[in-house]
């Protein structure tokens, strides 16, 4: 009797295991499917954004062309070409500073 009941328990355990695995597999499959859908959507979006970036880059090139910047700066800014007399090496600046730190050494 005891043997029979143990055999029954055993079968039941196996059936339960199979049920759990089936459910798990089913669940995982659907999870993967939905993730794959999400991935595809993201990939599509990445590609769309790349296309938009491409257009924006072209527009930026159009808006930042030197000819236009030149025209705009002439109209709105009071700038002129920088002459050589206004450019100096960064090292030579210290000589012109009122306080020289080397003196304290």
């Amino acid at each position: 009797m005891g043997g029979f009941s143990m055999k029954g328990n055993f079968t039941f355990l196996w059936l339960l295991l199979v049920a759990v695995i089936c459910f798990g597999l089913f669940f995982a499959k659907y999870e993967v499917q939905s993730l794959e859908g999400e991935l595809a959507a993201l990939n599509r979006e990445i590609i769309d954004r790349q296309g938009e970036l491409h257009v924006l880059r072209a527009e930026w090139a159009l808006l930042s062309r030197p000819e236009r910047i030149h025209r705009l700066s002439e109209r709105y800014l009071d700038l002129e070409t920088v002459g050589a007399e206004r450019i100096d090496a960064s090292g030579s600046l210290t000589a012109r500073l009122p306080v020289r730190h080397e003196a304290s050494e």
Binding site: E36, L39, L42, N43, R44, I46, I47, Q50, G51, H54
Partner: peptide, 10 residues
């Protein structure tokens, strides 16, 4: 690993 998205190209 998923296949990387196809790069947008002209």
């Amino acid at each position: 690993d998923a296949n990387p998205p196809v790069v947008w190209q002209t």
